[in-house]
Nucleic acid binder design. Structure first.
Lengths: 175, 175
DNA sequence: CGGACATTTCTGTAATCTCCGAAATTAGTA
DNA sequence: TACTAATTTCGGAGATTACAGAAATGTCCG
């Protein structure tokens, strides 16, 4: 695929952002490309367009599929995989957030529970144990909130999003 | 400071998490330590407790201050800085989210605007320009939502958090 | 001003991460 | 079964990042 300057910029920037988010730069670039591409692309085309080694593209695509950001489709008379990104930006943000929760937030909650339990019998002073409890509690609260919102139907989610801070009007009172 | 096993685990895990979040491991460990410590600590004490080089502790503390996760305080008759973390977990989550928005999300929005403008005159096909617009639009929507919620008084925020998905009851109808 | 202590910056090294090319594997075709 | 194309895995060179220790800078006091 032929890239215009703006497309190059987009892909480059997406790659930098990915790096900051702890995602491999190439992985993010490939995702950006697939996000822009109107048609599914083969691994080969991706290599050519971004000048990356075939092997890396393969690895990156696997990772993106792990994040459920990229899916494959088949075309008649072609045995190659054709890759395309999840189309909708709303879905995309959801997927990324959910992925991070799964991989980074939930394990921390678990670890905190273990630490808190362990602390009962290893001489950890009371005020530190209280700190554990407080930390776990607050994090759990955020997680519960997110989990509930995530379960709502899409239409409700977008409605809430549009409403923004105006939602506060419906709250009991004060503030 | 003397670390019990559970405290060591906590600090170690926090460090690993930090690494996944793109934060330097030592930085995250120091933050964990300060989060647990009931009293402010000097850089020297942090070195001893975590067995890190003085120089790195200095750099890490600077970075944590940049994130506004750590503040310094003074004590009479002591010219050393005493470091302590932001106490409240709720504040902490807010600070982290706000920091990430500032450093990673907002620049992307800006870059997208530039890319979209650039695309007008460099031969980028219409459907790609539409994709830019859609991407920018959705990301902007999330950002607007967050910005509004962030401005609400703390009490309102916690109320919303507790309410969770039940908030949907107040929505106009359907879904 | 000079000395003592605290902090930051600099420098070299160790550890880690990225990415290419080659080899191995898998899948489709005759 | 053999042949070919597509994909994945492996190994190591090159680049980046993290870190300790040394040197430099800054700050406070007399």
């Amino acid at each position: 695929m032929q890239l215009t300057p703006s497309m190059q910029d987009f892909i480059l920037h997406w790659g930098e952002m990915g790096a900051k988010w702890g995602v491999n730069r190439s992985v993010a670039q490939i995702h950006a490309l697939l996000h822009l591409s109107p048609d599914p692309m083969t691994a080969e085309e991706i290599c050519d367009t971004l000048s990356l080694a075939r092997s890396n593209v393969s690895t990156a695509l696997k990772e993106l599929q792990g994040w459920k950001l990229v899916k494959t489709s088949r075309q008649l008379g072609d045995r190659r995989d054709h890759f395309h990104s999840v189309r909708d930006m709303f879905d995309l943000v959801n997927t990324v957030v959910e992925g991070r929760r799964e991989r980074e937030y939930v394990p921390t909650l678990e670890a905190l529970r273990i630490v808190a339990a362990e602390a009962g019998s290893d001489g950890t002073p009371e005020h530190i144990r209280a700190r554990y409890a407080e930390t776990l509690d607050t994090m759990q609260q955020f997680d519960d909130w997110y989990s509930e919102i995530a379960k709502l139907p899409r239409g409700t989610q977008t409605a809430l999003l549009k409403l923004g801070a105006k939602i506060a009007r419906f709250l009991p009172k004060g503030s």
